[in-house]
């Protein structure tokens, strides 16, 4: 099982995403923004950071990187893709997920341990969680306020595509407390919190994030057998 981890100039949490992949005994494969080769991976993580400085809009430049064209194509064919934080923003800019992230309501960067409820346990990245499970995962961003048109939000809610929801307080003003969403087929998931920073209670608030990476092992196995 190979999980690709993309590095753009300005990507920060790629080492962490790779560590999380290794923690579930997957092989972490580095992917470079300027290549279009997915190097035979079974799933892709678009990690957090400030790609190209995020100076225009978060993710706005990264979506045009050669590697992203390949990721978009692979995702359309059903490859599991996870966008974390800046990666979520990139997936939205790339059109794999609807909506956009705005500046946090407090206008500050917020780094804190945040409780989330897992609302959908049928996506490629969440099958290992119990329905309604509450997990403790760090958030750290300044542009984390998810928003989309009223119609899109209605659609996401109606189709069960809100995957993670903030509980015990909304840290950034996200609409409907949305922390993460998925594509209609549940293969592409994006979330603002960082499951890769919750794989060991030594360096994170919990190891709840491991469930995300274990889930994708199952998802790619079932793809092979199907």
């Amino acid at each position: 099982m190979k999980i690709g981890v993309i590095t753009f100039p300005g990507t920060l949490d790629d080492v962490d995403a790779a560590r999380a992949a290794r923690a579930v005994e997957a092989e972490a494969v580095p992917l470079w923004h300027a290549d279009d080769d997915l190097r035979g991976v079974d799933a892709v993580v678009v990690p957090g950071g400030f790609s190209y400085g995020d100076y225009l809009r978060a993710g706005a430049i990264a979506r045009f990187a050669p590697i992203m064209q390949s990721v978009v194509d692979a995702a359309r064919r059903g490859m599991p893709v996870l966008g974390i934080c800046n990666g979520f923003q990139i997936l939205c800019e790339a059109g794999l997920l609807p909506g956009v992230m705005l500046r946090n309501v407090g206008l500050h960067f917020v780094c804190k341990d945040q409780w989330l409820r897992v609302e959908n346990t049928e996506t490629a990245w969440t099958t290992r969680f119990e329905p309604g499970a509450e997990i403790l995962i760090p958030i750290k961003n300044i542009d984390g306020r998810y928003t989309a048109s009223a119609e899109t939000v209605r659609e996401l809610e109606a189709e069960g595509r809100v995957v993670f929801r903030y509980v015990e307080g909304n840290p950034n003003g996200s609409i409907n407390d949305i922390a993460g969403i998925c594509s209609p087929d549940g293969r592409v998931v994006g979330l603002m919190p960082h499951p890769e920073h919750a794989i060991d209670a030594l360096t994170g608030p919990s190891d709840d994030g491991l469930g995300v990476f274990y889930s994708v092992l199952d998802a790619t196995r079932s793809l092979v057998t199907a």
Partner: peptide, 13 residues
């Protein structure tokens, strides 16, 4: 830096 990031991205696009 913002302007520089954009001007460097344009040729790539």
């Amino acid at each position: 830096p913002q302007g520089q990031a954009i001007v460097k991205a344009l040729p790539r696009l």
